[in-house]
């Protein structure tokens, strides 16, 4: 894991300082005094705390706020005792639990979800991943060519690419999807829904990634170019062996962002009737009035897929961080 510069001076853990805990306690208490949660799910969970005094609005509010603030601070202090990795694990676990308890309030029909999940995965997820992966591949290829063109001294290449990035970053993706699917047949080229979707997504994220690659390549000191060229390396060799390997650590975090948003933007392809995750979730849920079930399921699946990308990204970052260590 990469961290900020870590000072070697030992200091007391912040969450074990009484004044800090006092402040946090006061803040949480104040928040829950202002927002009345007695009527919500949370309030229901805390019903034992209120006990027989449920009628007394003011008392129940104070009781709830006090208990939540106390639990929050206890949690904070206890977590401060364990090692970093475990801290992260515990807090993640707690947040996921909170998040899921939110869905519990939706009163979802689990059997319906389980019944439709296999199809959602075998058809929907597969299509979504296929569309995203293809777009990712094409977008990367576009980006690297675009970046080099944009950094070149060739006026035509620069003009074409800057027009392209301006256009595809400037138009809403939904319009691009429609324009490509319905516009291309107008000029005599009939295109299927999936290729149209892939094309729109590639062009759109390719435009963003062109800028990412361009700034990454431009961030490398010109001395590296000079050293490489003076050894006799050609342009392509310099790019591949010297410049790109150094630009990648700079490029990868924003690339991860772009990939993740592309994964989710692939849901826009549903407007073309492609049987991907969003389209299926919608069409399975709608007729049986289980819209919420399918929406929540699809949302969770998107999240899991994004988390996988995040994981890959952090692995790659670790890999590059290792060669930077002194």
């Amino acid at each position: 894991m990469l961290m900020l510069y870590h000072d070697t001076v030992e200091s007391e853990v912040l969450v074990h300082k009484p004044w800090f805990i006092g402040c946090i306690f006061a803040i949480v208490l104040a928040v829950f005094l202002i927002f009345n949660v007695a009527g919500t799910t949370m309030g229901e969970l805390l019903r034992p705390v209120i006990g027989d005094h449920a009628q007394v609005k003011f008392y129940s509010r104070i009781a709830i706020a006090f208990v939540i603030a106390a639990m929050f601070c206890l949690n904070l202090v206890l977590i401060g005792f364990v090692p970093l990795k475990i801290q992260i694990g515990i807090v993640w676990f707690e947040l996921v639990l909170l998040f899921l308890s939110l869905f519990a309030a939706f009163d979802l029909s689990m059997p319906f979800i389980w019944a439709n999940l296999p199809f959602l995965i075998t058809q929907g997820v597969v299509t979504t991943v296929y569309v995203s992966a293809m777009s990712l591949l094409f977008a990367s290829a576009i980006a690297i060519i675009g970046a080099i063109a944009k950094l070149s001294s060739n006026g035509m290449a620069y003009a074409i690419v800057s027009f392209y990035t301006s256009c595809f970053r400037g138009l809403p993706l939904l319009m691009q999807v429609y324009l490509i699917y319905m516009g291309l047949p107008q000029v005599g080229y009939v295109i299927n829904a999936v290729p149209a979707g892939v094309l729109a997504l590639s062009l759109c994220s390719g435009a963003y990634m062109t800028e990412i690659f361009r700034s990454g390549i431009a961030s490398i000191d010109r001395g590296q170019w000079e050293a490489s060229r003076s050894l006799g390396f050609g342009f392509a060799l310099t790019m591949r062996r010297i410049i790109l390997p150094q630009a990648l650590p700079v490029i990868i975090p924003p690339m991860g962002n772009t990939f993740i948003s592309m994964l989710k933007d692939s849901s826009l392809v549903s407007v073309l009737g492609v049987w991907e995750l969003t389209y299926l979730a919608h069409s399975l849920g709608q007729p049986t009035f289980h819209t919420m079930e399918m929406l929540v399921t699809a949302a969770m699946i998107y999240w899991i897929l994004s988390a996988c990308l995040e994981l890959v990204q952090s692995r790659i970052e670790d890999h590059f961080a290792r060669s930077k260590k002194r």
Binding site: G223, Q224, A227, S228, S230, L231, F233, L237, P245, Q246
Partner: peptide, 27 residues
Amino acid sequence: VGMVFQHFNLFPHMTVLMNCMAAPMWI
């Protein structure tokens, strides 16, 4: 023609050995 620069301009992502091996191998 060999060139040595004021700011060294070594390739930071390669080991010292690889810095030296690169040109003979690739060129």
